[in-house]
Simulated assay, not measured.
Amino acid sequence: MRMRPTLSWTPTADPLPGTSDLRQVTDALTEGGVLVLSGAGLSTESGIPDYRGAGGSLSRHTPMTYQDFTAGAQARRRYWARSHLGWRTFGRARPNAGHRAVAAFERHGLLSGVVTQNVDGLHQAAGSRDVVELHGNLARVVCLSCGAAGSRHELAVRLEQANAGFDPVAAGMNPDGDADLTDEQVRDFVVVPCAVCGGILKPDVVFFGETVPPPRVEHCRTLVDRATSLLVLGSSLTVMSGLRFVRQAARAGKPVLIVNRDPTRGDQHALTRVALPLGAALVAVADRLDVPLDGQPQPL
């Protein structure tokens, strides 16, 4: 019988060097009760760029803020034109090996849950069921006036009808599904209103400058309390929305394990940071645990 490992951890202020050693991640999953916290780096192998990695979009792109979006029609025209074009690519993204590995770990009872900072729905498409979407999901839209919720696919059809022939060439794509377009390219784009009340439609995601709904945060805090350890996948932990859960786990003396190519803001709280490509690393861990990646991806 394989002995169940007991992970020990002592916080340190020293920089945490990256490693290629997957043993501690494997041991944590063997013990079970692991809460996954995933970020944009997990989806890069699905063709969705990240914000802060090498060549990350923040080096050339300032995301739309909630304040800008709600302040004026021109900002919303710019957002929806860019987002509509980006959705054609974003909406076709499919889960990669990393997403499938996380789903396989869940199926085999090794996880206590998944919290994702991503808005792409790829965890669910890979077969994960217990997923908290910290920042929402781009596949949904909501009316700021009446609160009616709708499908992004249905909105895309309405925007296509209102903007026949709209097919500009984008300079790049961003993790929030926003294509890089000039003001000239979006000048004549027509934004459609809520089909129920004629109000302003917004993607059901947390914009920069907007707060995560407090009940969602508290639910995630409860998940951290219940977890044995926290496994961070592909997040720089630069923003507090994810870092707060790392700090919470560390304060409780629970091991924090990070798989991310670059250093993160949470390294000082971690037992280890594995600096390997996520897909290959998670597949290697699954192989060591004899966990097959045999789930079929689900339609988005």
Rank of each mutant, 00 (worst) to 15 (best):
R94Y: 05
G53S: 09
N118M: 04
D176F: 01
R52I: 04
S8L: 08
D294S: 08
Q117L: 02
C143E: 06
Q296F: 11
D262S: 14
W9T: 13
S38D: 01
C143G: 12
G33H: 15
S46V: 08
A280K: 10
G41T: 04
D225S: 11
S83I: 04
P17D: 09
T10K: 15
G56W: 11
V283H: 05
D188S: 14
G165S: 08
Q74H: 14
Q248F: 03
V212S: 08
A270K: 00
D68H: 15
G127W: 03
A104T: 04
G150A: 12
Q67W: 15
C143N: 11
H61F: 14
G234H: 08
K202L: 01
V196M: 13
L293M: 00
S43M: 10
L276F: 02
E184S: 11
G98R: 05
A71D: 12
V36K: 01
V36T: 07
A13R: 15
E106P: 00
G177E: 03
D188T: 15
V191Q: 07
L22K: 01
H108L: 07
R92V: 05
G91N: 12
R152Q: 07
G242W: 03
A71T: 07
A179M: 09
D267N: 12
M3S: 10
D262K: 08
R4K: 15
G295F: 03
A101W: 00
D294Q: 01
D267I: 06
A54E: 14
L58G: 10
L85E: 14
T70V: 13
V256D: 07
H219L: 11
L278E: 08
L111G: 03
R251Y: 05
V119W: 08
V142G: 13
I200Q: 13
D14M: 09
G279N: 10
S112D: 03
D130W: 06
G147V: 11
E218P: 06
D130L: 12
L29Q: 00
